[in-house]
Design a protein around this nucleic acid. Structure first.
Length: 681
DNA sequence: CTTAGGG
DNA sequence: CCCTAAG
């Protein structure tokens, strides 16, 4: 048989030479893995990404304490100067930002806060205030808690205002087209604080933010197009069928959630370095945080609950800062979790404005569900395109608790993390039209009244918390999965955030978290149809009402409660088992294909080759799956359980298994690789 | 971090 | 899937 299709083109470094990839290439021979990250060409960054990236940079550069190498230089002594520096850095970064989209991050001091705080911040890092005093200072407005901090020993008071959807909306709508919003992050200080310094400058948004929405020619949302379409078209793939092939680069489901990327970033981004240790961040939203890490919320993961319990792949990757991130460690994450002090953030909401302009005649249908009723694009044909630009998103509030003794670097890190977390997973995008929330995701823009000629100022976007209140609700995880998330979410929006990877390849989507990821990468993946935007498939899930915010917010709003609450509820922190995600036939196929080519024993490569986009599915998972496949293939069909795997695939499994094990043994003695070629034929 | 295996 | 031992 012809097994391994040995194409010389393997990705492996050595790759080419003869036939098949060598079963085992010495690591040294392999290219640097870290570098291997693939980048997807066509992706663009969206506002979310930008924000995230900014944050990432911030973090990254932030201070040595964060970095591995620079560990030595804890930022500890913060002199006023440091702060300044910090600020500058930020600004610089901001300006550098490729995309330029970005927003500012400002630290504000609560007006009523003690002056000291401000001082501390500015002056130096370690804040020596009396914790108590601080907590006392909380605003009344803030629903959050002071208590928790005490426990934590954090000095900053966390403040959280809960925001209601309404508020969000209103904010969003407001309208000046131009207003930029900056994500404000309130750390310990109040949000309204009078004086704040902007760390980042508002960039000109002009720069073409990556098209959140616009792209012209394509007609559909550039980025997301695929996804969307797919979703619509294939609400769900029948289990048995092999709908899509997973095949290499594309497969997998995770893509959908945009969250992923951002999230990922987050996690990775910070290195939990202990140095900073003290501060950790916890999201209020239980979900957020966790999710973040996991990144994917849809499918199986229900939102919050399951997220990523263990640090596994998902978290790991954060391409953001580090290239190598792919392989970043769990450790970080773990550490992070552990130490985390807590930062609670409120949901961030944000709004964005965008302007719409004319556009091409393309259709926007993409976002609408398949079934739309009324008109499709009845209008004139001319401009069916609505171009929008989101100038910036504001992250309304972020609560962060951090010890006074924390370094500035840790503060940065914390903020970054919080931002990433939010971006990553905890948010979904809402669309507001004339101040009203447009909840029907299936409507076409036209139907929703968002026409090219109308849009400009009437359209708003909001970021809403994306967690689900209780995982329990979901029924079959599969079905439900995504819906929640999607539900309210505007298709477009979801899309937007995405692509992290594209940018520099850095961000991976790994995280499951967040928003729908959309990275281009995923295109092929959906087979699982994890998310069916349309939500059409399952009735139950129906959009039900998981409106984003509603349920969730309340729960978490009590800050005080939150912290403890989360833990109490489920401290997923360390570990719950990951949810089970049976391999689909297409995934199996992809696996088989990859193994045929790469052989057994090179799981990391298999992962990269065929499941790079599947955030969940670690190489260990793949190896395990292979193990089970081999077993499955060995037993009688009657004894097999679960979704049946086509016999053809099983046969290939056995053949590949046999082939590669043979190779392995052959090589052992000292057989030259060449031998294999003969064998093959 | 990866692999390989056992649980 | 998880966990661990070994590289």
């Amino acid at each position: 048989m012809v097994f391994p299709k040995r194409s010389t083109s393997e990705m492996e470094s050595g790759g080419g030479s003869h036939v098949a990839e060598m079963p085992r290439v010495p690591k040294s021979a392999r290219g640097k893995r870290s570098i291997r990250k693939k980048e997807s060409p066509g992706q663009m960054m969206c506002a979310f990404d930008l924000l995230a990236s900014v944050a990432g940079k911030l973090l990254d550069e932030g201070d040595g304490s964060l970095g591995n190498t620079s560990a030595a230089a804890p930022v500890v002594d913060a002199s006023p100067k440091d702060v300044k520096q910090f600020k500058n850095e930020v600004m610089d970064q901001d300006s550098c930002n490729e995309s330029a989209l970005v927003s500012h991050i400002a630290f504000q001091r609560p007006a009523n806060h003690h002056a000291r705080k401000g001082e501390d911040l500015e002056g130096s890092h370690p804040l020596n205030e009396d914790p108590k005093a601080k907590s006392g200072t909380l605003d009344k407005e803030s629903s959050m808690i002071s208590c928790s901090k005490a426990e934590l020993g954090c000095n900053f008071a966390a403040i959280a205002d809960r925001w209601s959807p309404e508020s969000v909306e209103s904010g969003a709508c407001t309208g000046d087209a131009v207003a930029n919003v900056m994500p404000m992050i309130t750390a310990g200080f109040h949000k309204n604080a009078p004086d704040m310094f902007n760390l980042l400058d508002p960039m000109d948004v002009d720069v073409k933010p990556p098209p959140l929405v616009s792209s012209d020619s394509t007609g559909e949302m550039p980025l997301y197009g695929n996804k969307i379409r797919r979703s619509t078209s294939f609400p769900r793939v029948p289990k048995g069928g092999m709908g899509f092939t997973v095949d290499r680069d594309e497969d997998d489901d995770d893509k959908s959630s945009g969250c992923t990327h951002p999230i990922t970033a987050t996690n990775k981004g910070f290195r939990p370095n202990c140095t900073a240790g003290h501060s950790s961040v916890k999201k209020l939203l239980a979900c957020k945080y966790r999710k973040v890490a996991p990144a994917r919320m849809h499918k199986g993961d229900l939102s919050c609950s399951d997220v990523d319990r263990k640090p596994s792949f998902r978290n790991k990757k954060m391409y953001y800062t580090r290239q190598r991130t792919q392989r970043s460690t769990f450790k970080r994450r773990k550490m992070f979790d552990r130490h985390s002090a807590l930062v609670s953030e409120e949901y961030a909401k944000s709004n964005a404005k965008f302007t719409a302009r004319d556009s091409h005649p393309a259709s926007l249908e993409a976002n609408k569900g398949t079934n739309s009723m009324a008109f499709q694009k009845s209008h004139e044909t001319d401009d069916c395109h609505v171009k929008l630009r989101i100038k910036s998103f504001k992250v309304p509030e972020l609560l962060i608790e951090i010890p006074e003794t924390a370094t500035v670097g840790s503060l940065k890190k914390t903020v970054l993390e919080a931002v990433n977390a939010i971006l990553g997973g905890g948010l979904r995008v809402g669309v507001l039209h004339h101040g009203k929330k447009v909840r029907d995701d299936n409507k076409t823009l036209m139907q929703a009244g968002i026409a090219h000629d109308d849009v400009l100022d009437n359209l708003g976007f909001s970021l809403e918390p994306n967690c689900t209140p209780h995982p329990s609700q979901h029924s079959p995880p599969e079905d439900t999965e995504f819906l929640e998330t999607v539900d309210t979410t505007e298709p477009l929006a979801r899309i937007a955030p995405t692509d992290s990877s594209s940018k520099h390849g850095e961000i991976d989507a790994s995280q499951e978290l967040a928003l729908a990821p959309l990275s281009a990468n995923y295109q092929g993946n959906d087979h699982d149809s994890v998310y069916s935007p349309g939500g059409m498939s399952s009735p139950d899930k129906a959009s039900t009402n998981w409106r984003a915010i509603v349920p969730v917010t309340p729960a978490y709003s009590n800050a005080g409660a939150i912290v403890p609450a989360n833990k109490a509820k489920r401290s997923p922190e360390q570990g719950q088992r990951r949810i089970r995600r049976p391999f689909s036939v297409s995934e199996v196929e992809a696996l088989v294909l990859a193994v045929e080519k790469l052989g057994t024993g090179r799981w990391r490569d298999v992962k990269l080759r065929a499941f790079d986009n599947a955030k969940h599915r670690t190489y260990v998972d793949l190896k395990d799956k292979w193990k089970t496949l081999v077993h499955t293939a060995s037993i009688s069909p009657q004894q097999r359980r679960g979704e049946p795997v086509p016999q053809e695939l099983l046969d290939r499994v056995l053949a590949a298994q046999a082939y590669w094990s043979q190779q392995q043994t052959k090589l052992q003695p000292k057989t030259p690789p060449l031998a294999e070629s003969r064998l093959l034929t």
